[in-house]
Design a protein around this nucleic acid. Structure first.
Length: 414
RNA sequence: GCGGGUAUAGCUCAGUUGGUUAGAGCGCUUGGUUGUGGUCCAAGAGGUCGUGGGUUCGAGACCCACUACUCGCCCCA
């Protein structure tokens, strides 16, 4: 047992784990590119203020989950707990308001000081998209369609469910908020301690509490849908109609809320019951107030983020890694020739590996271990005759091939 | 921050009501095959039983504390 362990809540990714991880990221980006999204890479840390302002001073993320520290220069910086704030900051600092609409895809590590459990790490990875500058419901439809498309491409269409809700515009939300607070205040004794605190900070969050008392109190509450004004109602209907027209199935969930103030209109989540408590796999919404709240020009936006580890866990078997060609010099005298052949194979686009040492048996074992499809064996006889012994490691068949013909002969293994 | 579970070989785990030299499978090394892997056979290496304390004639096992991991609550992707 080594005493040297990774930091709590962090993991080393290797072998198949990395391949699943990359498969998620690359598939997502490839699909996003078809929708016109370009990748944006923002720093993994920002001025603490960037997150405080965007996430709200009362959110759990800001109040207890951020990795915040002071630099040698005395500035407070924070490892990003999510991706939207950094993109919004880049939008403002880059003066990109003139170039809307803009579509960004991002991926990378996020950091939250939480208690780790299944599907929840302290360093985890997200992929996400942001569409900035489009106020029309068409943007909501496209962004959700993109998410659905990616999940389908990952062969997860059958494992996830899309839930949808509308938070309305500011006017609707303020009206409903007051109604809800009044209703719940009258039933304060039924509420959990957490939810009593939320009454002031985040009353909408009480709607999706799992606490039995909260659920009972909320059961008879006036519905958000009835308090949407005409414009908000029309907006939500257009989103729903658009999704239906594209054949994207969804379920309206009135309890689906975002606690943060800048969220409005569309909120959505793709969830699964295959991951225990951490069922949300991809979630997002419209945030028309965000850019302005950060000090930029008023710009509508909508986006989502997905947890790469969670998606990777759900992934069915992925395609096996490409099988390499093993080049095996029998003794030290053949190493030079083997290196030359290996280099030529690699230049020609093959995946090739060379046995590093030991006797031939060892090198053959190594070839088997890396799942080589074929071995190119070079002994003194072969070198003398300018040939190589090509052994099919599946069937055991082997033939002598002139070294000059190797690339053509091995074409099937490319 | 609050609960539950677990901790024995590199990995996955077994280990009887507490009893003398702590086991298996896989993996690893070597040999059977000094120019042939995967299969097979044989041998071998590898463990202060998470750490510290306690109970006992005797602790891997029982008790306490700590640490780590893990699963829930919470939060969220």
């Amino acid at each position: 047992m080594s005493q040297l362990q990774p930091i709590k809540g962090t993991h080393d990714l290797m072998f198949d784990d990395v391949r699943r991880h990359r498969f998620v990221e690359e598939t997502a980006f490839e699909i996003a590119a078809r929708y016109g999204y370009g990748e944006i890479v923002t720093p993994v840390f920002e001025a603490t203020e960037v997150f405080k302002r965007t996430l709200g001073d009362t959110s759990d993320i800001v109040t207890k989950e951020m990795y915040t520290f002071e630099t040698k220069g005395g500035d407070s910086v924070t490892l990003r707990p999510e991706g939207t704030a950094g993109v919004a900051r880049a939008f403002i600092s880059g003066g990109l308001a003139q170039q809307t609409p803009l579509k960004f895809f991002y991926r990378g590590p996020m950091f939250r000081y939480e208690r780790p459990q299944k599907g929840r790490q302290r360093q985890f990875h997200q992929i996400g998209v942001e569409l900035l500058g489009v106020a029309a419901p068409q943007a909501d439809i496209e962004v959700i369609a993109l998410a659905a498309h990616i999940l389908k491409e990952l062969r997860l269409a059958g494992t996830v469910t899309l839930e949808l809700n509308s938070l309305g515009d500011t006017e609707s939300r303020n009206v409903y908020r007051d109604v809800l607070v009044k209703f719940l205040s009258a039933r304060k004794d039924q509420l959990s301690e957490d939810s009593r605190g939320r009454l002031d900070r985040n009353p909408l969050r009480i709607l999706d509490s799992k606490d039995p008392g909260d659920k009972a109190a909320v059961a008879g509450a006036p519905s958000f849908a009835e308090h949407l004004n005409g414009a908000s109602r029309d907006f939500f209907k257009e989103v729903q109609d658009g999704l239906s027209a594209l054949g994207i199935a969804f379920k309206v969930n009135p309890a689906l809320v975002r606690g943060l103030d800048y969220y409005c209109h569309t909120a959505f989540e793709f969830t699964t019951d295959a991951l225990g408590a951490q069922g949300t796999v991809l979630a997002g919404g419209r945030y028309d107030g965000l850019i302005q709240m950060m000090g930029g020009p008023s710009t509508p936006g909508i986006g989502w983020a997905a947890g790469v580890e969670r998606l990777a866990m759900l992934l069915p078997e992925i395609a096996p890694a490409k099988r390499p060609i093993a080049v095996i010099p029998i003794g030290e005298d053949e190493v030079r020739v083997a290196q030359d052949i290996t280099a030529r194979l690699r230049q020609a686009g093959f995946t090739a590996d060379i046995g590093y040492g030991g006797n031939m048996g060892k090198r053959m074992k190594r070839a088997d271990k890396i799942h080589a499809a074929v071995a190119v064996i070079l002994g003194s006889d072969e070198v003398r005759d300018g040939v190589a012994t090509v052994r099919n490691l599946e069937t055991g068949d082997q033939v002598r091939v002139p070294q000059a013909d190797l690339i053509r002969h091995l074409a099937a293994y490319k």
